[in-house]
Design a protein around this nucleic acid. Structure first.
Length: 718
RNA sequence: GGGCAAUUAGCUCAGUUGGUUAGAGCGCGUCGCUUACAUCGACGAGGUCGCAGGUUCAAGUCCUGCAUUGCCCACCA
């Protein structure tokens, strides 16, 4: 036996062990139809940067499950991949370009795509090696990327099918527009926060009268696009005016607009009268639809005021226009007052620019048709959420779901598979059509929009298995077993996977959804670079080892709740790693090579009371860990083996046997002691392996007698 | 406005079929170090389990109400 170092030095060991596993082919499961597989599709990390601590969380939790099930003898697949992460990657790469003083428009669509692709591939490789360093025992041989051609074809297949089924439509609707990214966003991609602003009260003169209607607004500049004023039909103040069918003189313009009645208007708020701008407000858009009001677009896609707003204002940005409108109203004596006001303002999730609601031509999914079966599947318990309370959150969202805008005006992503002919014909197909199906013209051009990233990642659990082809892999591994991810993407991703999974394959894509929380520091603060409280997972792996980090990430945490981590906690587990290492070192130096531990029979041993005690404690620990795994309580399992190993095995048994080996009366007693040490260590290594894979494998490899080639494929203790 | 959750030791958190002296890590105190342990061991201090009711032989655990905190969703002009 080699001389073991007196402390555990992860750096020397981890990469060697990982290579051994990879070379051994242990990560690739065999297809064995007599056995039910255990399958996790890894949430594909966005291939646009390096790993952060959140990635370490999913690696840890998923790898724990994977290693446990693999040791139980189940064909276990953990399939990795990478996500192109549409807008996010585009924003990141545009920042790279900005450093060179360039924009994407300087490069043009084709070149931009090419460069972003190269950038993504480079990051992807870095990221994959980082996952290896955390110990991820995933099947690299099957890795996928959302933009690779097979996956893209499957995504187009779904698009076409949904279009033919009438579930995808194209229409001119009001959407969330990011003036910086110059793209539409789905409702989920808009983040709201409270901001201080002014509520402006403006008098709108009534035609042929000296009276006014006073409206209150937070966006006075949009009045230039007003096409009505609305009041609640029950509002006594306005009932007479409504009857008279009056016209209102829109200030600063020469337009006359009607007064309409609409229940959406709250009597209590402001003056009870609302200016209606269907082109630039979602509620106003709905009011406009109902009352067939015209839409005037006074803000363009760059956030600038258009000619439609009048020559005095055209070309201004929104803020300047607001200032000028206020000044002009004041001059005319129509400005009543401005009050301080707090309300929530939406901004782009990726670049934080304030959202401009705009009317434009976009693609949408009629989502209710997909949501219904997705709700039903959960009600029928075909899918179970862990923790359970997410079931209600899921229902709450799914029952109030609205159509999903899936087109983006960005370049990085799957280009929408629709082609237009000059004759006005539109063709939706998987492959680029040669000629127009109506006029036979070959002059077709493809829709310039790309698909929302989540439309493709929503199909990830089956597109990775070459669906819609019914391959062996698809038949064997789909539906998958567990989807493990952060609860923050429950709606973005999990809900969409369930909807699209049922729609595309007729089956739920997974049976369990395990949702982990957000990582925070020991003061419960979100980790962010600006706060300087980030823990770089690779940095701590260098310092303390992957095993210590993994253990620190599961210990004392439970599904769904925030994960509190600090350097102190990681250090505590580095100490535990060292404890295991030294216990093993002590045991190994006492197991002389002349006895064949594997051949010893229990009947030949002379157990003491203490021996029976530790053996029964060991069995109890195995049972508790088993129960904890059944309930997805990984922290409990970790805490059980921690407590057992340190405070029972090390503190009691090893100390006891240490004395017996030194002063033991007879050989039989000493042999029994040695066997206990060996046996309990071996079983403990197995129980510890899902949590601390590197250290345990290294010790296993040093055992004088090992039943298998590697611990990773050992039999789980019963 | 609708919804979800949390409240347990100085700090950060576990405690999911209700059942013996409520646990861990870090921190704190005393002692020890005998050759596995840049440490470790032994012992210890510290909790009316947010508040008030209720169900029960038995409640941190179930029910009701209240308080405080956090989060999510929503068309707060």
């Amino acid at each position: 036996m080699n001389q073991m170092e007196t402390t555990y030095k992860p750096r020397n060991i981890e990469s060697k062990i990982y290579k051994m596993w990879e070379k051994g082919g242990y990560f690739t499961p065999p297809i064995n139809y007599s056995k039910k597989p255990f399958v996790i599709i890894m949430p594909p990390p966005n291939a646009n940067g390096i790993l952060h601590i959140g990635h370490a969380v999913f690696v840890t939790i998923e790898d724990i499950m994977i290693r446990y099930h693999r040791m139980k003898g189940e064909p276990t697949l953990w399939l990795p991949g990478a996500d192109h992460a549409g807008i996010m990657t585009q924003v990141v790469y545009e920042k790279e370009l900005a450093k060179q003083g360039k924009t994407r428009f300087d490069l043009g669509r084709k070149e931009f795509y090419k460069q972003t692709y190269e950038f993504t591939m480079k990051n992807r490789e870095i990221m994959e090696n980082q996952l290896r360093r955390l110990g991820a025992s995933c099947d690299w041989s099957g890795k996928k990327f959302t933009l690779e051609s097979k996956i893209s074809k499957a995504v187009y297949y779904t698009f076409k099918k949904m279009y033919n089924d009438g579930l995808i439509y194209r229409g001119e609707r009001i959407i969330n527009w990011c003036p910086r990214c110059k793209t539409a966003l789905s409702d989920l991609e808009v983040k709201y926060e409270n901001r201080s602003t002014k509520l402006t009260f403006i008098n709108y003169p009534i035609e042929d009268s000296k009276d006014f209607i006073t409206v209150a607004t937070t966006r006075p500049e949009t009045m230039l696009g007003d096409t009505a004023v609305a009041v609640n039909p029950e509002d006594k103040r306005y009932k007479n005016l409504l009857k008279k069918n009056i016209k209102i003189q829109l200030p600063l313009t020469n337009r006359l607009i009607p007064l309409v009645a609409d229940e959406r208007v709250e009597i209590e708020f402001g003056t009870g009268a609302v200016k209606v701008t269907p082109g630039h407000d979602p509620v106003d858009f709905e009011i406009g639809e109902q009352h067939q009001l015209p839409i005037i677009k006074i803000i363009d896609q760059g956030g600038k005021v258009t000619k439609e707003a009048g020559s005095d204002y055209a070309g201004l940005d929104v803020i300047s226009c607001r200032k000028k409108v206020i000044e002009d109203l004041e001059k005319k004596g129509l400005l009543v007052k401005q009050e301080d006001y707090q309300h929530s303002v939406g901004s782009c999730e990726r670049c934080q620019t304030i959202i401009e609601p705009l009317v434009s031509q976009q693609w949408f999914i009629r989502i209710k048709n997909l949501a219904e079966p997705a709700i039903k599947a959960v009600k029928q318990k075909k899918i179970k959420f862990i923790p359970d309370y997410f079931t209600k959150i899921y229902y709450n969202w799914m029952e109030n779901i609205k159509d999903w805008c899936i087109s983006r005006q960005i370049w990085w992503g799957h280009r929408i598979p629709a082609w237009y002919c000059e004759c006005g014909e539109m063709i939706v197909d998987i492959n680029s059509p040669k000629t127009c199906s109506k006029c036979k013209s070959s002059n077709l051009h493809q829709d310039s929009d790309t698909l929302d990233t989540w439309f493709s990642s929503g199909q990830w659990p089956f597109t990775v298995f070459s669906w819609p082809k019914k391959t062996e892999d698809y038949k064997y591994f789909y539906p998958t077993t567990v989807m493990e991810t952060g609860w923050d993407i429950l709606f973005f991703w999990v809900a969409r996977m369930i909807m699209l999974g049922i729609y595309c394959t007729g089956k739920v894509p997974f049976k369990y959804v395990y949702l982990h929380g957000l990582v925070r520091d020991k003061d419960r603060q979100k980790m962010s670079k600006s706060k300087g409280n980030v823990i770089d997972p690779l940095g701590v792996v260098d310092l303390y080892g992957a095993d210590a980090l993994r253990m620190a990430l599961v210990f004392g945490t439970s599904a769904g709740s925030d994960i509190i981590i600090s350097e102190e906690k990681i250090i505590a587990h580095r100490r535990f790693a060292n404890k295991i290492w030294n216990a093993a070192r002590f045991i190994l130096t006492n197991l002389s090579g002349d006895i064949d531990l594997l051949k010893i029979k229990r009947e030949d041993l002379q157990f003491t009371k203490e021996d029976y005690w530790i053996l029964s404690e060991l069995n109890l620990t195995i049972e508790k860990i088993e129960r904890a795994f059944q309930k997805f309580n990984f922290h409990q399992a970790a805490e059980e083996i921690y407590g057992f190993f340190w405070h029972k095995f090390c503190d009691k048994t090893i100390e006891d046997i240490k004395k017996r080996l030194r002063n033991g009366q007879n050989l039989q007693d000493k042999l029994t002691g040695k066997w206990i040490l060996y046996h309990v260590l071996l079983v403990s290594l197995k129980l510890l392996h899902p949590f601390m894979p590197f250290l345990t494998e290294e010790i296993y490899q040093l055992l004088p007698a090992k039943p298998k080639k590697a611990l990773i494929i050992e039999d789980w203790p019963k």
